[in-house]
Simulated scan of single mutants.
Amino acid sequence: MANKYLVYMETNLYKQGLLLLRQALDNSTADFRPGQWEAIEELLQERYRAYLLFNALVGEKV
């Protein structure tokens, strides 16, 4: 079962990303191309995992 917080976070990130895309293009109906958001999301998840790993290695709490 998916963590409810992670599902909310992913949904919220998508909404924020879509808002930024629409602002950047000055187009209120712009949408991601097929596969575009999934690629962005994967990069964000990898960065988050690296952040957690780094903090675990240096002993900091997140």
Rank of each mutant, 00 (worst) to 15 (best):
Y14Q: 05
L43V: 09
E60C: 05
L19A: 13
R47S: 11
D31G: 02
L19V: 04
L21K: 15
K4E: 01
M1C: 01
Q16P: 01
Y14G: 03
K61Q: 15
R22T: 08
R33E: 15
E60D: 11
L20G: 06
M9I: 05
Q45M: 12
L13F: 10
A24R: 15
L57A: 14
Q36F: 01
N27H: 09
I40K: 15
R47C: 08
V58P: 01
L52N: 06
N3F: 00
D31K: 15
Y48R: 15
E46W: 04
A24V: 03
L18C: 05
L13H: 10
M9W: 13
R49Y: 09
N3R: 00
L25R: 15
V62E: 13
A2I: 00
A24D: 12
T29E: 14
E41W: 05
A50S: 14
P34T: 04
L21I: 07
R22Y: 11
V58A: 02
Y8H: 06
P34Q: 02
W37L: 01
F54E: 14
K15C: 01
E41R: 15
A50T: 12
T29A: 03
G59P: 11
N27V: 05
F54H: 13
K61H: 13
I40T: 11
Q23Y: 07
L13C: 09
R49H: 10
V62C: 06
Y8R: 06
A50M: 06
K15G: 02
Q16F: 08
V62M: 10
E46M: 07
M9T: 04
S28Y: 04
G59R: 07
L21T: 06
A24Y: 09
E41F: 12
A56C: 03
L52Y: 09
F54G: 11
L53G: 03
Y8S: 09
L25F: 02
R22D: 11
G59W: 11
L44E: 10
Q45I: 12
Y14C: 04
A39Q: 10
S28M: 05
L53N: 12
L25Y: 04
Y51A: 09
